[in-house]
Structure formats: C-alpha cells, structure tokens
C-alpha cells in the first residue's frame, strides 16, 4: 500500500470488547454519518458484527475483507498460490530471525543481570548498549528482509490489476467514499494487514480512522508481537512486519496489562530500549491515543514503557511522535 498523507485524525484504542467507546470517539470526531468497518482480523467470524453495529448505532459499511479474499482465492487459484508461497517465505524468514533473536536477547538479559560494582558501571553500560544495538540491528534487518519479500511478490500479485481483486477494490473505494470514518477492529494482526494490503491502496486522506488493538498495531510503523507469559516458548517479543506507517514513532501494546509483566523493570527496559527511539505505548481497556498528522494530541489511560524500566502514565500534553 502506498502511504497516504498523514493529516487526518486517527484515534488508537485499547480492546473494545468490554467497554466499547468507538461511538463516543466518532461523535467527538464529528463523524455523524455512516462509517466503514474492517473486521477482517476476526477471520471466519468477520461477519458477526451485530454487537459492533449496535454499539455504533449508525449505518455501517462493512468492507468484508476476509470474505472478499476467500472469494478471490476461490475464483483465482493463482492468487492463492502466490500468497501461499509468500506466506511460506515469510514464515521461514521469521523462524530464522527467531533463532538469532533468541541469542541476541539472551546476551542483553545476561548483561542486565550483571552486578557492575562501583568501578565497572560505565563499562557495563557500554556493553549493554552494544547488545541492545545488536538486537535493534537484527530487528531492522528482519524488517528489510520482509520488505524484500513483499517487493518480490507484489509484482506477481498485481493487486490493482488482477481481475479477481479489481471488482472488490472498486466496491471498497465506493463504500469508503460514502463513509464518514473508518473503524479498524482488532483480531489476527497478520491477516488484517494482509487483507488491507490486498484490497486498499491507502485510506482516503479526508477519512478519520478509529482503530483498536490489532487494528491500531497495523497503523504503526513497526508491528511488534509480544507476550511475556506464553504457556510455551521463551516469550521474546519480535517484530513482524512494517505496518502502514500512520502512527509514526509509536509501538503499540494492546492488552499490555494482561500480556506484559509491567512490574519487572529489567523486562520493561529490555523492551523499551530495544525499540528506541520509538515510544512504546500500552493500549488497555479505556486507553485512547489521539493523533493528528505526526503529532500525538491527547492520550487517555495510556502508559509509556521507559528505557529505565519504569512504566509512566502518559501525560495529556502534546508529545511529538
């Protein structure tokens, strides 16, 4: 997708299942008419939008990106085959990245646990910063390789010209033109991103965006997968792909209270320092980040993960993203 000019209002929200607030956000944005909704991250359950519709209490143009993709795959096996190949390539890349990441993060962890003593503090800090830089380099390399894979496959996919997609893309453009805002629900972050790339070349510049959980993640520059307490595996956060770049400088952590161990400063520092200079924001129930252009205008019930391991409530002052 080409990146649109980021001048519109964008509101990033935490999970909406228990205390939805999309409607009040839309009201505040002055989006009074019909809105478009993307729930492709819900996969097979995409069409179960009754609750969302009831909450929004206005006409909803449901874009049905997951189902449109299923229809396109059925009609166009070649498209399905190419996407399958790309998926396999990305999966292979990810497993190799994980191998290297495990060791790079283990080095950071070991250094963090060292007792520097009085005289070695500077030395240890220099070593630690180098170890962090190694992880940052690895993350950057991974993102570059993911982009290379997309560059390799995009000309084969030809989303803008492929007959199995063109009809859907035209319909979607029409629905977006009639909408006063676009709501991006959470769910499976990779599927959501993939479907957006398949059917949209960007969002109309005038269209306010309200996105929550995975929906918010895909709008950021870097999508970071995370969970500190998985029942299996080491739980190393990993970068998945570049996002759509509409929330520059922010890395978003939905369900942070449930998924991250925020009272372990070394762990928080490991995440925040690794992702510097980006700002790591938690998106929990009730959270909202209001953006216009490249600037964060307002943050509600949002915390910032700090490089020193602390977790501070984000201020309401304007913060440059």
């Amino acid at each position: 997708m080409k990146r649109p000019t980021p001048a519109r209002p964008i509101v990033l929200l935490g999970p909406q299942r228990r205390e939805p607030r999309v409607r009040s956000v839309l009201e505040e944005l002055g989006a009074e008419g019909p809105v478009a909704a993307v729930t492709a991250g819900w996969e097979e359950l995409e069409e179960e939008i009754e609750e969302l519709q009831a909450h929004l209490d206005r006409p909803v143009h449901h874009l049905r990106l997951w189902h449109r993709a299923e229809e396109a795959f059925e009609e166009d096996p070649d498209l399905y085959r190419i996407l399958r190949e790309r998926y396999d390539a990305l999966r292979r890349l990810r497993s190799l990245y994980r191998l290297r990441l495990e060791y790079a993060l283990a080095a950071v962890r070991r250094l963090q646990e060292q007792d520097p003593g009085d005289r070695l503090e500077d030395l240890l800090e220099a070593e630690l910063e180098s170890a962090f830089e190694e992880v940052r380099r690895l993350d950057r390399e991974h993102l570059q390789r993911v982009e290379e894979v997309h560059r390799e496959y995009d000309p084969r996919i030809r989303a803008a010209e492929r007959p199995s997609l063109v009809r859907h893309r035209r319909e979607i453009r029409g629905l977006l033109e009639e909408s006063h805002a676009l709501c991006l629900a959470g769910g499976h972050v990779a599927i959501l991103l993939n479907r957006l790339r398949l059917f949209l070349d960007g969002f109309p510049d005038r269209l306010p965006l309200v996105a929550w959980s995975a929906g918010a993640m895909v709008l950021s520059e870097r999508i970071v997968l995370f969970h500190d307490r998985p029942p299996q595996g080491p739980g190393n956060p990993e970068v998945l792909e570049p996002g759509l770049g509409l929330a520059p400088g922010l890395v978003l952590f939905p369900h942070a209270r449930r998924r991250l161990i925020l009272d372990e400063p070394l762990r928080v520092a490991r995440l925040a320092r690794r992702l510097q200079p980006a700002c790591c924001l938690t998106l929990d129930r009730g959270s909202a980040v209001w953006l216009r252009g490249r600037a964060v205008q307002r943050q509600e019930r949002v915390s910032v993960l700090q490089g020193d391991g602390s977790v501070l409530p984000a201020g309401t002052e304007e913060v440059k993203a």
């Binding site: 959470g186 972050v189 990779a190 959980s213 995975a214 969970h227 998985p230």
Partner: peptide, 9 residues
C-alpha cells in the same frame, strides 16, 4: 498451541 502471538482482539 493457540493464536496467542498473532491475535490482539
């Protein structure tokens, strides 16, 4: 294994 790593509802 569940979709824990990929799904953020």
């Amino acid at each position: 294994p569940g979709p824990l790593w990929m799904v953020y509802e």
